[in-house]
Nucleic acid binder design. Structure first.
Length: 573
RNA sequence: CGGGGCGUAGCGCAGCCUGGUUAGCGCGCCUGCCUUGGGAGCAGGAGGUCGGAGGUUCGAAUCCUCUCGCCCCGACCA
């Protein structure tokens, strides 16, 4: 491709709207342009990059035995009513009516459509297992789209769905996908981890997220430094030490005045104790109902864990100004004793002895509070956020926290959808059985953003070779010299003939501008035909990633370069 | 939706507080000359209903009201 004929609107200055690196560089490099919040046009360079990712995904999915199909983006409401998600999915599901006043939605995901297809077309166990996937635009009416391609409303996703005869078979399908995902992200040149994850609105019993490690990630992961345990903090199990029981006589409960002492630290300091001897009471709304969650004073509630423990679909902290109004409890002085609303306690709280807790009376706390004796929670379990002070739940090793970008998520769905939608097949013994399903997503457009988050410097993007829109850029630094231009053109043609993706910068620009643009758009290899060619008959090859530059004879250069690129690609496969 | 910030030329910004000529600057764009190894220089030029509506005023980018949009922090997720 000739640079002069391609729309690559690079900018020198940073766009005001972009804060994170990938967003900034995608805009500056002329990969994307914003239409409106959360909606982006992929410009030619952006589309090429997206297609590179899609090609890798497609290749590995096919290799794993999955079949590609394409489902409609517009989906009828009745399918969603059947699965129950028309009510459950919430405002993220964009709904609308057609001219006949029939309800539809734009597909945020395709469990309903695929399950409908399966129940019509898959009749016999002989047809199973089946794994069907598509690469398609999804629409989710996100509360807050942000960070460019990282979190859009419209985005490109690969979604796959597996159908199996049994749970064991489904587990096998799941493992096949897990392996495929590892290959995909490895081939994309990304530093990633597969972590245990929460299942969210998709539902299901078991899932892993694939996280690209990057500071701008929206998720936090815990990673064990000794074994291969890794988990999303939303999910990470907190191990309860065997010998955590305090050896202390239970004291009688006493009411003390603690005027103005709302924060745990202040109460503890005032009463001459430490936050780990205080029971912290946090109020939440679980599906609209008030719930009190108890954790030790030096811990934080993990609301996803709370949600799962309660079996709720939505949990949010109760706004301060609603606490009194809804519960008649004084914010800052709440405690578990005679609280009068649903009570959930972290496992650790149940071991506390002679704790301090709010008295449910303004300006007062209780001392000598003992769980089991003075209050009995409705539920107990693992409720708190894990910290780096906690041991690894698998091996007891030490944990570190890292930010991550979720680029893939795989779920074991079980029979939830097939039961709701009566999707069955006839098994070997003649009985009708529900399909055991799995679903597997990859944010194809997000992979592009994640790759940039992980691979850039102050000059611009440094694309991993497999994702780069072009593998080589040829700079003609002598567009006004016929001889130089002829040499550059020849190299351009020969590299193309060797099967490489080549961008040929034939613009009438000064060298500086060409170097800057080449760096900005992140093409892995740069060939320069200019002064050194004119003087010594040599050309220059420079690697974007390392800055390493070699000069080589013009003759034979194309062979050397294409061999180098092929070797590198083969090595990553 | 709650909290914070911003809308002035294609992009980045100044001007607004304290109303008053023809609304500026840098980059980019067009023409010519010149230049060609890290975003050159000179000369000339095009480009704006100051997000929109209403109001105050002799007079509004500037003050007031409403409204729309965008960005950032939280819940959501590939």
């Amino acid at each position: 491709m000739r640079y002069s004929q391609m729309l690559i609107p690079t900018t020198r200055e940073n766009p005001a709207e972009a804060e994170v690196v990938s967003h900034r560089l995608l805009l500056r490099g002329g990969f994307i342009r914003k239409l409106t919040s959360g909606l982006y046009t992929f410009l030619p360079l952006g589309l090429l990059t997206l297609q590179k990712v899609a090609a890798i995904v497609r290749e590995e999915m096919n290799r794993a035995g999955a079949q590609e199909l394409l489902m409609p983006m517009v989906q009828p409401a009745d399918l969603w009513q059947e699965s129950g998600r028309w009510q459950k999915y919430g405002a993220e599901l964009l709904r609308f009516r057609d001219r006949h006043q029939r309800d539809y939605c734009l597909g945020p995901t395709h469990e309903e459509v695929i399950t409908d297809l399966a129940r019509r077309e898959l009749r016999s166990y002989r047809q199973l297992p089946v794994n069907l996937y598509q690469i398609q635009t999804k629409f989710r009416d996100e509360i807050r789209p942000r960070f460019g391609l990282m979190r859009c409303r419209e985005f490109v996703m690969k979604d796959a769905y597996s159908f199996d005869v049994s749970d064991e078979a489904a587990s096998k399908s799941y493992e096949v996908m897990r392996d495929a995902y590892h290959r995909i992200f490895r081939r994309c040149g990304l530093d990633f981890r597969a972590v245990e994850a929460d299942t969210g609105t998709i539902g299901g019993s078991f899932s892993h997220e694939f996280m690209v490690l990057a500071d701008t990630g929206e998720d936090t992961l815990v990673i064990c430094s000794h074994c291969d345990y890794a988990a999303n903090v939303e999910k990470a199990r907190v191990a309860l030490p065997e010998d955590g029981m305090a050896q202390e006589e239970m004291a009688p409960m006493a009411r003390v005045a603690t005027p103005g002492m709302k924060k745990v630290e202040r109460v503890a300091g005032f009463l001459g104790t430490t936050p780990d001897r205080v029971i912290k009471t946090m109020l939440y709304l679980a599906d609209g109902e008030p719930v009190a969650a108890l954790v030790r004073g030096d811990r934080e509630v993990q609301s996803v864990k709370l949600k799962n423990l309660l079996g709720a679909t939505e949990v949010e902290p109760m706004p301060d100004d609603e606490i009194w109004q809804r519960t008649k409890l004084p914010a800052g002085y709440m405690g578990p004793v005679n609280i009068g609303i649903r009570l959930v306690a972290d496992q650790e709280v149940m071991r506390m002895v002679n704790a301090v807790a709010g008295a449910n009376e303004k300006g007062h706390h209780l001392t000598g509070v003992n769980p089991g004796r003075d209050f009995q929670p409705d539920l107990t379990g693992d409720l708190r956020q894990i910290t780096t002070d906690d041991p690894c739940p698998e091996c007891g090793g030490s944990l570190t926290l890292t930010e991550g970008i979720e680029v893939g998520h795989i779920f074991k769905l079980g029979t939830g959808y097939s039961e709701a939608m009566k999707a069955t097949f006839q098994d070997r013994d003649g009985t009708e059985k529900h399909f055991v399903m799995g679903c597997y997503g990859i944010g194809v457009s997000r992979v592009v953003a994640a790759a940039i988050e992980q691979n850039h410097d102050e000059h611009g993007i440094i694309f991993p070779l497999p994702l780069a829109p072009f593998q080589v850029i040829v700079l003609n630094l002598g567009v006004n010299s016929e001889a130089t231009s002829r040499a550059a053109e020849q190299i351009y043609h020969d590299l193309q003939a060797a099967g490489l993706d080549v961008l040929y910068d034939d613009r009438d620009e000064r060298p500086g501008a060409k170097f800057k643009d080449a760096d900005l758009i992140g093409i892995p290899f740069r060939v320069t035909v200019g002064r050194t060619w004119e003087k010594e008959g040599k050309i220059e090859l420079r690697r974007r990633a390392t800055g390493e530059t070699v000069t080589m004879d013009y003759d034979g250069a194309v062979g050397r370069i294409s061999a180098m690129i092929r070797d590198e690609l083969a090595g990553q496969r």
